[in-house]
Write a protein that binds this DNA or RNA. Structure first.
Length: 177
DNA sequence: CCCTGATTCGC
DNA sequence: GCGAATCAGG
């Protein structure tokens, strides 16, 4: 399977949306996650929106070659059963949303915000502001029954991830001649 | 043990 | 350029 422009475009899109390499590999089909990662690297997309992993490993040692020309003939290990369990792909688990879809909470202009110290059980726990800010707090309205949020924020919390269904692949076929 | 991305290197 | 093997971490 070759990396056509369409597939590379799809790869970029999915990668930018935060999908994992294996997810992208399944989506595209015909490639493994290694292939996806390798392509991502060659495209220079390796670091997306996850700088929370500044792991710098020293250069690894060269991979040891299995030495196929081994003169050994007495390989007495037939007991190994290399059966593999076929993974059943999960149907549709909205594991996570795209980072771009995250809406930064805004403070409601009513001054009803409570702080981490004062928020209690029946209060809406919708975050207000940046957790790093000293005045970070919660909405504080009465929570809506089961929901940890008030009626307003509960709607926001349960809003399904709306996907963009705009398939604009027209320009990809211009080089088909 | 499952997953994740990162890197190397033979092809 | 490609991707399996491998590594390293969660």
């Amino acid at each position: 399977m070759a990396w056509t422009e369409e597939r590379v475009t799809e790869l970029k899109k999915l990668w930018a949306e935060g999908h994992s390499a294996s997810q992208i590999a399944k989506q595209l089909g015909g490639v493994t996650r290694n292939a996806v990662i390798g392509k991502v690297h060659r495209l220079g997309l390796s670091g997306r929106a996850t700088p929370s992993r500044p792991v710098k490993r020293p250069p690894r040692l060269a991979r040891p070659k299995p030495q196929v020309t081994q003169p050994i003939a007495a390989t007495a290990k037939p007991a190994s059963s290399p059966n593999r369990t076929p993974k059943e792909s999960l149907p549709a688990l909205p594991s996570r949303m795209a980072p771009a879809a995250y809406v930064k909470p805004k403070r409601l202009g009513n001054g009803d915000m409570v702080t981490v110290m004062t928020v209690s059980d029946s209060m809406c726990k919708w975050p207000i502001g940046d957790p790093a800010d000293p005045d970070f707090g919660f909405c504080g309205h009465s929570s809506d029954g089961d929901s940890p949020y008030c009626s307003e924020h509960a709607k926001l919390a349960f809003q399904p991830s709306k996907r963009k269904r705009t398939n604009t692949y027209g320009q990809a076929t211009r080089m088909a001649g």
